[in-house]
Amino acid sequence: MPELGAVAQKVRSKNAGPFWLTLDIFCGDAAAYARVINGLDTARVAALFNVPLQNLRRFDIADLHVVKISLPRPAVQGVAADRDMHGAGWAPLLAEMQID
């Protein structure tokens, strides 16, 4: 079971406004994209992020070889409990997750 980051070319995370986070998995080519869409279990991503599965919106974008995952921010950007103003830390967490 490889880490997602070893299969995909790049994983990035960013705010999509103060209330949403978005993660983009750039797979690079069709083969990596096929491995990622088949091996990346959305329920396991939800468990990794400790959020309800129904909070995740997933887009498999074949034309770009990209999988995009968006979710409401567990802590709104900038509140006392928010540790990460720009949502930067979610990408390495996801990249280190093992996929099937």
């Binding site: 960013k14 978005t22 974008i61 770009l64 968006s70």
Partner: peptide, 14 residues
């Protein structure tokens, strides 16, 4: 690719 990929940026729905 670079142009269409920009719709992903800071956008919850691409």
């Amino acid at each position: 690719h670079t142009v269409s990929a920009h719709m992903l940026y800071e956008n919850a729905d691409p």
